[in-house]
Design a protein around this nucleic acid. Structure first.
Lengths: 101, 101
DNA sequence: ATAGTTCATCGCAAATTTACGATGAAGCAA
DNA sequence: TTGCTTCATCGTAAATTTGCGATGAACTAT
């Protein structure tokens, strides 16, 4: 990326919106979130049945959503139960609403 | 990316949200859009004064926003006047509202 | 102990994104 | 014509994203 000079202080709002938007920037992740929203909670296996992609790829998208804070995973051996993180979801909603007026 | 097997039909909604989200996934582009929203319209030079990045980099981000449809550029030699594309903006707003309920 | 299930993570490859400086097109002014 | 301004685009480099198969960790059941 050849980052030579630029250092920019982004506002919290700029950072937050960009971060959440990045998490939403792939159609598979939109599908995962909407699926989660309907089911309330899912195991990884539910997604691999629903979405025709390699299990490892889906796991990677779940990780991206988790790192953005939008979902959380609770260990229930041998499975992992994913739910939407309602607090983060509400925050994202607030920031996007505000952004679009 | 080694795309060997997977072909997924995304819904229009999935595609639209992901596409707009991608455009919003960089804090500089958030800043550009908010700046545009306040000023109603700007020339490229206004951004280069406001944002401490190379002119070519800013131009590239404007291009990304233009390709997503969120802004439009009108040639006013020797400058280019950028405005928010209100129709696309309204559409993005609608999709995000819908997505967040 | 062995075998099966569920899932994250690793290693790799290709594509895309991000950033820069340099260049050049388009137009204006002298 | 020559020179100036404004801006997109090109070329390049580094980082990140996306996707896969393979592996292995963690747990359950036999």
């Amino acid at each position: 990326m050849q980052r030579t000079t630029t250092i920019i202080d982004y506002s919290l709002q700029e950072e937050k919106i960009a971060r959440y938007a990045k998490a939403l920037s792939h159609p598979i992740r939109i599908r995962i979130l909407q699926f989660l929203d309907r089911q309330s909670c899912c195991f990884t296996g539910d997604f691999t049945e629903e979405i025709p992609m390699a299990q490892s790829t889906i796991s990677q998208h779940l990780k991206e959503l988790k790192e953005a804070g939008l979902i959380q995973g609770d260990v229930m051996p041998p499975r992992i139960k994913y739910c939407i993180n309602q607090a983060a979801w509400a925050e994202a909603k607030k920031y996007f609403n505000e952004f679009f007026q």
